[in-house]
Design a binder for these strands. Structure first.
Length: 299
DNA sequence: GGTAGACCTGGACGC
DNA sequence: GCGTCCAGGTCTACC
């Protein structure tokens, strides 16, 4: 079954897919041979479907298996539109950055959209699992969580959808710590899952909330395990770019770019992007760092 | 409000 | 192969 979904222009599926590392995390898969991306979606009623994404006629073709009824097709269309930001526009950002050497590529490469998961719950869990660990550790923890708690596709033991809050909420800290190997993050993930499952925390209401960014940020910071970096990262996924996700990598690239490799603090990172106003997070995200390029060449 | 220490894991390194 | 050290954000206790 195929669905065609139009996108605001300019659009590049490849650019969205490689906007950050999310595509490497289950239940996304990226086929090295042809670059095709797929996602195992948990749909209403407990159905699991594979969605394969291909660029088509300036938009996206979603190839879905198994075939779905009309209601599920609509759900998949909404889901893919959100995940790829098909309705997002960046003309104002492009106009602002056109003459900036580190950002002038943005319009040509249709940059701006950041790959996201269908639910803010999944993005929040994955963001917590990026903190204080290596990227390899994040991949491992997400894979374990998905394979242990997610529903399988068509009874297959190999591929699973991302677990719902309820599916994780039935677990316990010891299991998440010892078997899923989430380490000290186990209680954070469990508490978040139980809060969402019980209705105490309506995370999905934040997804399309029109709250001021500062209030949205406070709501995210109230979740145990989400600090300033994680909150800024989630705000970026929600299309709010007022805060910078400052981590050790951010300090490193800013240090190399403008401070001759001398250590910098968070305020220096912040001030480097202050002039981009409400777009500062995106400007930071898309900046063509000379440090990164020299590392790429070296490696 | 600022700071130190703990949390947990995997990788790098030295022996 | 084993032990040690370090990096990576956030929380909590303390000043």
């Amino acid at each position: 079954m195929e669905l065609y979904l139009p996108a605001q222009q300019p659009f590049s599926l490849n650019t969205v897919i490689h906007s950050h590392g999310w595509v490497q995390l289950a239940p996304f898969t990226l086929e090295e041979a042809n670059g095709e991306v797929s996602y195992l979606a948990r749909l209403r009623g407990g159905r699991v479907a594979e969605i394969r994404l291909q660029e088509d006629r300036g938009g996206v073709k979603a190839v879905v298996q198994p075939a779905l009824d009309e209601a599920h097709r609509e759900q998949v269309a909404e889901m893919v539109t959100w995940m790829l930001g098909l309705d997002q526009e960046f003309e104002d950002f492009y106009a602002l950055t056109r003459d900036e050497p580190g950002l002038s590529q943005c319009a040509d490469q249709a940059q701006g959209r950041i790959l996201r998961c269908p639910t803010l719950f999944e993005d929040a869990v994955k963001t917590i699992l990026t903190t204080n660990t290596s990227w390899a550790g994040t991949i491992r923890m997400v894979k374990s969580l998905v394979s242990q708690f997610g529903l399988p596709l068509n009874g297959s033991d190999q591929r699973h959808a991302f677990p719902t809050p309820a599916e994780i909420a039935t677990s316990d800290v010891d299991t998440l710590r010892a078997e899923t190997r989430l380490g000290y993050r186990a209680p954070y993930i469990l508490e978040l899952s139980r809060a969402v499952d019980s209705g105490a925390l309506d995370l999905e209401a934040l997804q399309r909330s029109d709250l001021p960014t500062a209030e949205l940020r406070q709501a995210l910071l109230s979740i145990k395990g989400i600090g300033e970096y994680a909150a800024a990262n989630l705000l970026m996924l929600l299309g709010r770019y007022d805060y910078l996700p400052i981590d050790s990598w951010a300090r490193k690239v800013v240090s190399h770019e403008w401070h001759q490799g001398q250590p910098v603090d968070d305020e220096q990172v912040q001030s480097a992007f202050e002039r981009w106003g409400d777009w500062k997070g995106l400007a930071f995200w898309l900046y063509e760092w000379s440090y990164y390029q020299s590392e790429t060449v070296t490696n």
